[in-house]
Design a protein around this nucleic acid. Structure first.
Lengths: 234, 234
DNA sequence: CGCCATGTTGATCGTGGTCAAGAGGTGTGG
DNA sequence: CCACACCTCTTGACCACGATCAACATGGCG
């Protein structure tokens, strides 16, 4: 399933990363805090549906997406699945307060990520306040997105959920009004707390009301952003 | 509405808190990091339904609950309300990555909180890695709770939601199998993405199946924790 | 071309929402 | 001390949104 599994990742890891970090001159060493992942991270790539990390297993790495799309999921014992978030280029995920991951992460498309050992990142953060602040900022922004998503799942109608989703995706990856969705209907449904049928019907409805046009099932053009904003309660 | 409003809070605030913080010897000064809020915080009390902070207003303070219960809410423009979390004694809330609050917080019961200026807390955190780590930890734990709640709202049935809620509240404030809920049905409904009628009916159902017994509408006794765990998908 | 995964559409069903009435509980004033 | 008002909670009848079940369409890949 995985192009690069944990074993090959282990083989490539920086030896004694913590010591190496501790021995360096830290904040203000001419090293931009935004680039810490690029400097410490091990590039790993995952094919479509590859498992990047699994719920309740040791949270050994923190990840930054280089390319592709990643979903975080939680599954009930009878198979019901909920997607908590999608991560795209530049996004950091896998930061855990406990020792284990609290959700699984899988590649929605072929995806390249940078993996940084949790211990390395924490050692760095303990010396470099700017990096610590960056990690906190990432976590706090994820929390804000989660709170918005709680509002969507708790109180919005199917139509509002889909409109919100399209606007969110448009903000994150639209080029000149056109939008190529990286995920399939099942992922959208599991993100929005709906079924694929309802997502499909709602997309069709939005097209029939000229809010969007569906070039193909994955290609959406925003025809009326105001129409979407109107249908999207806020 | 407020027993102590922003103005009186201003009047009581520590003068030049940032400078004061910066002038102190910091980590390792014999000061336990868990007590930083107690040392820097201004006690404020709020009556039932008092507004502690409001969405999209400047995030001037971070709060720690001393006593009582607090709810965080988001409201859609047509009045639909979603409660994101309940905060009880010891919980910290109001930590924001941006300059504004991303949700409102109100006292569910009479509540006493410690308010610490955001700028003070951040200044302290920038000097004291342990405190920075504490703040990050709080944020990351809130994120985990939010992710669990996303699963509940996206994929659980009404019965499962209420069972999960009772077990959560039992963990947080049960004394010898009995449980005094601080919030009314409307708060529970808005937390679980249901209506008060459904919450009420579901409570009645759980009583009729001997999972709980309802002493009064606010007093719940856990009759069969295994029954609740069985109904609660996980 | 044919297969299999993905997506769409239709018919019907059921969970939870809505509307409505009434019960219970609490505080206030006569 | 009771009468009354107000708020909260429960229960019932009915409804509707989204789920389920099913058939078919589309599209990518061997």
């Amino acid at each position: 399933m995985l192009m690069s599994n944990t074993q090959s990742l282990e083989a490539k890891r920086i030896p004694s990363a913590v010591d190496w970090v501790a021995s360096r001159s830290l904040a203000g060493a001419g090293r931009r805090v935004e680039d810490v992942f690029e400097q410490l991270g091990i590039p790993v790539s995952f094919e479509k549906d590859g498992e990047i990390c699994a719920e309740s297993e040791p949270a050994e790495y923190i990840y930054k997406v280089v390319s592709g799309t990643v979903r975080s999921t939680k599954i009930l014992d009878d198979g019901r699945r909920q997607i908590g978030a999608f991560y795209m280029a530049g996004d950091i995920f896998g930061l855990e307060p406990g020792d284990d991951y609290h959700f699984s992460a899988e590649a929605v498309t072929h995806a390249e990520v940078l993996a940084v050992k949790r211990s390395t990142a924490f050692a760095w953060a303990s010396q470099d306040g700017d990096f610590a602040r960056l990690l906190w900022n990432v976590t706090a922004q994820h929390l804000q997105r989660a709170q918005d998503h709680i509002l969507l799942l708790g109180r919005k109608t199917a139509l509002e959920r889909v409109a919100t989703f399209i606007l969110e995706m448009a903000d994150r990856l639209a080029k000149e009004g056109a939008l190529e969705l990286p995920m399939m209907r099942q992922d959208i449904a599991d993100y929005l707390g709906l079924t694929i049928e309802t997502v499909s019907r709602t997309m069709t409805h939005l097209e029939s009301t000229h809010a969007i046009s569906l070039n193909s099932s994955r290609q959406i053009a925003l025809r009326s952003r105001s129409g979407l904003n109107r249908v999207n309660a806020c």
